[in-house]
């Protein structure tokens, strides 16, 4: 019917129902129900964590746990492991990505695919293989966790670094520095690292986030990290464990949500101002934009890793 008269087609924009969309009632209904499903567990665990005697609210379960020396020690271990993993990630993946883009550009796609392989082998299976293939002395050291997290987080960290490297005019930068007499070490230190700052930071951030939350491998290899200690506490005192996990969750959510919400803005503003992304809001916005891009919705049309960020399941 609408098609019979031209004016009606022209005003069709005002009627969202004349396309593959939902009307206002239906879409509000759907979004409200979804919001309930996602917010109720969060609110419930916050309430559960803060529950005192006779319906009062108290922070005692949280504060009690921060006097738990075993838990604090496990937190230190987790932080050490995650920083180690991030350092190895940068040292290993940045030169690799630079080399691939410089010397073997034909292999770029293949490298992207190879770095996605850790997603195909479930973590429990990797643990089985570690017990089967590695000497017991290595399996007993928590250093192994840092080494493995580098591989497990690689689908995300390599993407972050490689994206940055591909965005550079690598040949020009390297040729220029080399012709001015810089050695390779100097090229990396004074040209590439500064130019890749935001990509490197986001790769490090993603690796740290993965390592801090990883439970399956740490638990099955019998290491005491923050998540496994939390699990132990949870078997006896669910309230307390919930308190700490809510605390950790809110912290992570806050950081991620802030990065996610403001990340795109920094980049977009920079683009609008005609500046390369990153000169606009300094390193925080840059990092945010990078994390945002890797988590997946800054550039929704991009195929590949399916918009999945580091998971800790």
């Amino acid at each position: 019917m609408a098609a019979l008269s031209a004016p009606r087609v022209a005003t069709a924009r005002a009627h969202p129902a004349a396309e593959f969309r939902l009307g206002p009632v239906a879409r509000t209904g759907v979004l409200v129900v979804a919001a309930l499903y996602f917010l109720v567990p969060l609110l419930a665990s916050a309430r559960y964590a803060l529950e005192g005697a006779h319906g009062s609210y108290t922070l005692s379960s949280v504060t009690a746990l921060f006097h738990d020396s075993v838990l604090l020690q496990s937190l230190v271990t987790s932080v050490e492991i995650s920083l180690g993993a991030a350092a190895i990630t940068l040292a290993l993946l940045m030169p690799t990505s630079v080399w691939v883009n410089l010397r073997m550009p034909r292999w770029r796609r293949a490298m992207e695919s190879i770095t996605l392989l850790p997603l195909v082998v479930p973590v429990v299976v990797v643990v089985l293989g570690i017990y089967g293939a590695f000497p017991t002395g290595i399996v007993a050291s928590p250093v192994l966790l840092a080494l493995e997290y580098v591989v497990l987080a690689m689908p995300y960290s390599y993407r972050a670094i490689d994206g940055g490297v591909q965005a550079l005019d690598l040949h020009t930068l390297v040729d220029a520095s080399r012709s001015l007499g810089a050695g390779w070490a100097q090229v990396f230190r004074r040209v590439l690292v500064p130019n890749l700052r935001s990509s490197l930071l986001s790769a490090a951030f993603i690796t740290v986030a993965y390592s801090l939350g990883e439970f399956a491998m740490a638990n099955l290899l019998s290491f005491t990290t923050f998540p496994t200690e939390l699990f132990q506490i949870g078997t006896e005192q669910v309230g307390e464990a919930t308190a700490v996990s809510v605390f950790a969750l809110v912290l992570t959510f806050g950081v991620l949500l802030a990065l996610s919400l403001f990340g795109g803005h920094g980049r977009r503003r920079a683009v609008r101002a005609g500046l390369p992304a990153g000169q606009a809001d300094g390193v925080v916005a840059e990092l945010a934009a990078e994390v945002d891009a890797v988590l997946g919705h800054a550039d929704p049309g991009r195929p590949g890793i399916v918009h999945d960020g580091p998971t800790m399941r």
Partner: peptide
């Protein structure tokens, strides 16, 4: 993006 990355404990 945030909820898709929850999970675990």
């Amino acid at each position: 993006a945030v909820f898709a990355n929850t999970g675990g404990l």
